[in-house]
Nucleic acid binder design. Structure first.
Lengths: 112, 112
DNA sequence: CATGCAGTACGATTCAAGTCGTACTGATGA
DNA sequence: TCATCAGTACGACTTGAATCGTACTGCATG
């Protein structure tokens, strides 16, 4: 037996539709960049709920940013009961923009 | 004899100050991304005037975007008499964000 | 020195994005 | 069945970015 079927992903752009400007725009927000860095470093395999990130912002703000990431094609979101979990679209992004995710994961902000 | 001294670059962030969000933000504008792609592909060595790009926009708009690129640390600008020429800070960006420029140069927009 | 030219500076306008409060939805478990 | 909990939807507010017209600067060449 394989594992149980996953819920369908929420609406997202197809691989062929991914645009570099859009993806870079999504990653240019500090909060969103932090989300993606944390996902890549700490959970590249499994998807995570909004709460997992421990971001101290109102829930409506978080919804806004997670939606922006999904609509830009950076993340995939699935609904599991109450929870909406996010994961980075690693394969799709590596296929279309090779090196981008490595770079994002490797980068550490300057600490002056 | 080496070649003549270059004019001093206009104010720009130091390598250590480069921030990924900022650079990605600068590249997320379609017009600016086009500028950088053209520079990387057609003139990675020498610097170019605003006019060289052949962009059909008012001059004040171009000034705005070239300044944004410089202030984000993506380009270096030098004043040669009347002309202000721009070049990509290839070494600095490769040192800080390895792979980013390759990716930008390699990418081709979808043609639907 | 005066004209032309590359590009800037400034200010106005417009539009998109980030932020957040409040009300809502829909699955879960007592 | 009813309360709880994760997260959304909507709308208001505010800020910042893009765009562009017009006026300006300053080198360069006659």
């Amino acid at each position: 037996m394989t594992s149980a079927a996953l819920p369908e992903p929420l609406p997202e752009p197809a691989v062929a539709e991914l645009r570099l400007e859009t993806v870079l725009g999504a990653l240019s927000d500090p909060l969103r960049l932090g989300i993606i860095r944390k996902l890549l470093r700490e959970s590249p395999e499994s998807d995570r709920t909004c709460g997992w990130f421990g971001i101290d912002r109102p829930k409506s703000t978080l919804t806004h940013h997670f939606k922006a990431l999904r609509e830009a094609g950076v993340t995939r979101q699935r609904q599991y009961g109450l929870e909406r979990r996010s994961q980075v679209r690693v394969d799709d992004l590596n296929a279309r923009f090779p090196g981008l995710l490595d770079l994002v994961a490797a980068w550490t902000p300057p600490t002056p």
